[in-house]
Design a protein around this nucleic acid. Structure first.
Lengths: 122, 122
DNA sequence: GCAACACCCGTACGCTCGTCCGGGTATCCA
DNA sequence: TGGATACCCGGACGAGCGTACGGGTGTTGC
């Protein structure tokens, strides 16, 4: 370990310290992003964003994924408060929650598609 | 396992199948988001976004984090091509890469701060 | 040159996440 | 009412991530 005894640039350290989010806020941000940072969950959200409502089995069909994987993804998304379920008989339909955060939908989902397509890796 | 023998709503499945990103693209998206989905890395990016350039030790000071944690975060960020390093003597300065993706900076960093502050958990 | 410094690297450990598997509940059809 | 369907839930397993530690490289100052 080699801790700085004295800061090299005290001014910048002070300015950075003011603007950097607290550790708690950073953890909250990381939790939100971690929910999206999974292929299955992201594709589930894209599918629901495209066709409004789908049941679990159809979702697995549309994604070519196992029903277990989709079920787990939906559980996590539900725990994060991003999707809602509606029971119609023995079928459970899922959709994006009404107040789905617009920034996530616009940028972290749609804009990110173009980003990943456009730039492979510098 | 209970695979759907027939889709409940074949039309919506077909439409969703067209619009959902492929598994490969979803993995690429998840990789990008996973880099941001870490408190230390997110705070490092915020600090560099605020004051342009900082060395490792000052960065650890500004974040109240161990130098190991910051060093590992910087290694990951460098591997993802998001930061650059400049050696000045025995001090190494880091800054955001020139072509830092604007969507990430604008929305996944700045907008997400407001998002996490506004809504704790529905 | 020698010592101290700033930082990097590889390894080992602990922990969480995602998947698989078995059983369970509620619903529909015959 | 019995069986099949659609889905949920629990624990078990393997894999990957983040942290801590020890040793290493290059640089500065005496």
């Amino acid at each position: 370990m080699a801790d700085h005894v004295h800061p090299v640039d005290a001014d910048r350290v002070a300015r950075a310290r003011e603007r950097v989010p607290s550790r708690e806020d950073a953890v909250a941000m990381a939790d939100v992003l971690a929910v999206l940072a999974d292929p299955t969950r992201a594709r589930v959200l894209h599918a629901l964003d495209a066709v409004e409502e789908l049941c679990v089995g159809d979702l697995a069909l549309a994604l070519d994924a196992s029903e277990d994987a989709v079920g787990y993804a939906l559980r996590v998304l539900r725990g994060a408060g991003l999707v809602t379920n509606r029971k119609a008989g023995r079928v459970v339909f899922y959709r994006l929650v009404a107040g789905f955060p617009a920034p996530l939908r616009e940028h972290c989902l749609r804009a990110l598609v173009d980003l990943t397509r456009g730039e492979p890796a510098p």
